[in-house]
Design a binder for these strands. Structure first.
Lengths: 345, 345
DNA sequence: CTGTTAGCGCCTTCAC
DNA sequence: GTGAAGGCGCTAACAG
C-alpha cells in the first residue's frame, strides 16, 4: 500500500506521540485527549488525508469488523432478500459483510468458510440449505468450530445443525400446513417439484407436505414427486417432465417459489392454465410473487427479517456459549393460483 | 482472536524456523523447501488446525484480497445480477467481495467507500447510478483518489466519471433506439416513468428517449414525464399518479424494469390491460421479465457480464494508469408488451 | 493528560 | 535449502 499516510506521520506532523494521535483519532479505552492537542491531530490527519488501516487496527485490537455471509446464489431472490437483511443489520453495528455464492457446490461452500476463517470474520452466517452429506457436514462442523475458537460468532439459517446457533425455518410445519390448506380447498391429487435430494430444505418441505396430506388421508404417489435443481430453471424442467409424463394431478407444489415460477412458465408455454388446468403453490413468498400472474399461493418466510435476526443471533451470543436454536414460524398465504375446487368426497 | 494457533506454533511443533514454515505453507518468492521438512510442517499445521491469519498476511505482504462492491440495494434484481457477476469473477481470482447497499443515499455511499478505503480493498467497484450532486461527486472523487493512491483498483459501472475506469452503459443510445423502435411500431403518444432527478442513469435514459422521439418528429410532453423512486414501488406509485391524472399516452416507458413491473401492477389493479389499453416498455432486461405477463419490451443490459467485466477492468489496469472508459452496448428487445399499432400518419 | 514500549501474526530481505 | 531479524500500522498496557 504505497503512498499511504500512517498514524506515525500524522503524529509527527502534529508534534505528538503515536499514542496520542491514536487516541485522538479513534478514542481508545476511556482515555481522553486534551482539546488543543486533539484538534491539532485532527487537523494534521485531515491535511495529510489520513485513513486508518483497518487491518492493522483489527490486528492490534484482536478483532475484525467483518461478517461473512454464505449463500447459494446471490442472484436468487431468496438469497438476495436474506442478504439485504444481513447487510442492513450489519451496517447498524458498523460491520462490513462479505458475501460468497456457493452455487450449491459443497466444495465451494467449504472453501468459502475456510476463507472466512482466515479472515477471522467476526461472524459467519450460513444461509440457504445445508447438505445431507455426512462428509461435508463433518468438515463444515469442524471448520465452524475453528471459527468459534477464533472468537467468531456463527449463525445458520435453515435447519438445525449440530453445534451452531440456528434460525430454523419451520419447513415441515409450513409445508404440512400448506398441504392441509390445499386439501381443505378440495384438492386431492398432488404432485411435488422437489429439489436435489441432498438439499435438506427441500427434503423437509417434501416430508412436511407428505405428512400433512397423510394426516388428511391422502397419499402422495412416489411417481408424482420429481426432483430437479432448486432453481427457476429446475422448476421449469421438472414441470415440463411432469407434463411429458402426462400429468395426473390437480395441484402441484414446488418446494420453493423460484421453482414454482419456472413451473408456471413451463405450463404457460405448453398452453396450460393456472389455476384452470392445474393449481400451483410454492414456498418462501419472495417479493416478485406479487408481480406474476396469477398470484401464487405460498408459505411466507420473512426472509429479510431472518437475515437481520441471524446477525442479531450471532452477535448476541458468545462464540463459546451453547448453541441456541430459534424456530421462525411460517404462514400459509392462499392466493389465486389455488382457488379451490368442489370436494368430491 | 484467542486460542488461535499461529505460524510460530506450527514452526515450533515441526522443529523448523518461522521462515521455513511460512515458505512451506504459502510458497513465497521463488524459494522452495526440502520435501521432508515441508511434509513435517504440513503435518504439524494440520495437526494443530492452523489457518493463516489473512489480515496479518495482507499486512506483511502489503496487499489485501478483498474487493468492495457498492450497490444501491442488493435486493434489487439489477444489483443482484451485477453482484453475481462480480462475485464469480472475484472468486476466480481468489478474491473475496464485500457488498454494501447505499439505499440510494449519497451519504451512505460515501461512508461505504470510506470503509473500503480503510480496508485497503484491492479493488472497489461502484455499481448503479452516480448522483448528479457536485458536492457528493467531489467527495467521491477525492475518496477514490485515495483508494487509488493506496494501490486500490477501481471500476465504476454506469456512467463515465472523471478519473476512474468505467464501464459505461449506453443509456442514451439504448433509450433512443428504443424510442425509434416504438415509433416504428406505430406509437405516437408517450409517457415516461423516470427516477429521481439526481440519478444520472435515469436522466440519461430519459434524455435518450426524448432525443430518439424527437428524431422521429415526436415531442415528449413535459407533463407526461413523472418522477419517482427508481424502484418497483416507485414505478407503481408513478403509474398510479399518471392514471389519476387521466393518462394520455398509448405507450409508457419506465426507465428501468423494476419500475415497469411496478407500473404493470398498478395498471392491472386499476383494470387496465397491457398492451391492450397501454403499451409498456422498460430497460435492463432483468431475469424475472421472462416470468411476467405480458413479456416486457426492454433494452437488454448484460448485467452479470458487466459485473465480471468490471472486475476484469479494475484488476487489469494499474491504479495509477489513466482511466479507461469502455462502453457496453445495449440491445432493444421487443416483446408482447408493445405489439405495435397501425400508424395513423 | 501524554509519551514509551511492547507486541498482534506474518513475510521477506539478508546471512549462513 | 534454512535460519535470524526487521518491519507492516496500530493499540494497549505501562509509566511519567
Amino acid at each position: 500500500m504505497p503512498g499511504q499516510v500512517t498514524l506515525a506521520q500524522v503524529a509527527a506532523a502534529a508534534g505528538v506521540s503515536l499514542a496520542t494521535a491514536s487516541r485522538a483519532l479513534n478514542g481508545s479505552t476511556g482515555r481522553t485527549v486534551g482539546a488543543p492537542l486533539a484538534a491539532r491531530v485532527l487537523a494534521a490527519a485531515r491535511e495529510l488525508g489520513y485513513s486508518v488501516n483497518a487491518y492493522a487496527q483489527a490486528m492490534a485490537r484482536g478483532a475484525t469488523t467483518t461478517v461473512g455471509l454464505v449463500v447459494h446464489d446471490i442472484a436468487d431472490p431468496y438469497a438476495a432478500a436474506i442478504a439485504s437483511g444481513v447487510i442492513a443489520a450489519a451496517a447498524e453495528r458498523g460491520l462490513i459483510v462479505t458475501v460468497a455464492s456457493t452455487l450449491s457446490d459443497p466444495a465451494i461452500e467449504i472453501r468459502h468458510i475456510q476463507a472466512l476463517l482466515q479472515q477471522r470474520a467476526t461472524a459467519v452466517i450460513l444461509a440457504g440449505s445445508r447438505f445431507a452429506d455426512p462428509q461435508v457436514t463433518a468438515t463444515t462442523t469442524e471448520l465452524l468450530a475453528s471459527v468459534a475458537a477464533a472468537g467468531g460468532h456463527i449463525a445458520s439459517i435453515g435447519q438445525d445443525m449440530v453445534g451452531v446457533n440456528t434460525l430454523a425455518i419451520a419447513n415441515r410445519d409450513g409445508a404440512a400446513h400448506l398441504a392441509r390448506t390445499l386439501h381443505s380447498l378440495g384438492y386431492r391429487n398432488f404432485a411435488v417439484l422437489a429439489g436435489p435430494e441432498q438439499l435438506l430444505t427441500s427434503e423437509e418441505r417434501l416430508a412436511g407436505f407428505r405428512d400433512g396430506l397423510a394426516g388428511c388421508g391422502v397419499e402422495l404417489a412416489a411417481e408424482n414427486i420429481i426432483g430437479a435443481q432448486a432453481t427457476r430453471d429446475g422448476g421449469y424442467v421438472a414441470m415440463a417432465e411432469l407434463l411429458d409424463r402426462g400429468l395426473d394431478a390437480e395441484c402441484v407444489f414446488a418446494v420453493n417459489d423460484v421453482m414454482a415460477v419456472g413451473a408456471m412458465a413451463a405450463l404457460r408455454e405448453q398452453g396450460h392454465h393456472v389455476p384452470g388446468d392445474v393449481a400451483l403453490a410454492g414456498f418462501d413468498d419472495i417479493a416478485m410473487l406479487r408481480d406474476i400472474e396469477p398470484p401464487l399461493t405460498t408459505v411466507r418466510v420473512p426472509l429479510a427479517d431472518i437475515g437481520r435476526a441471524a446477525v442479531d443471533l450471532a452477535m448476541g451470543t458468545e462464540p463459546s456459549a451453547a448453541p441456541v436454536v430459534r424456530t421462525v414460524p411460517t404462514e400459509v398465504v392462499v392466493r389465486a393460483s389455488t382457488p379451490g375446487r368442489p370436494a368430491e368426497e
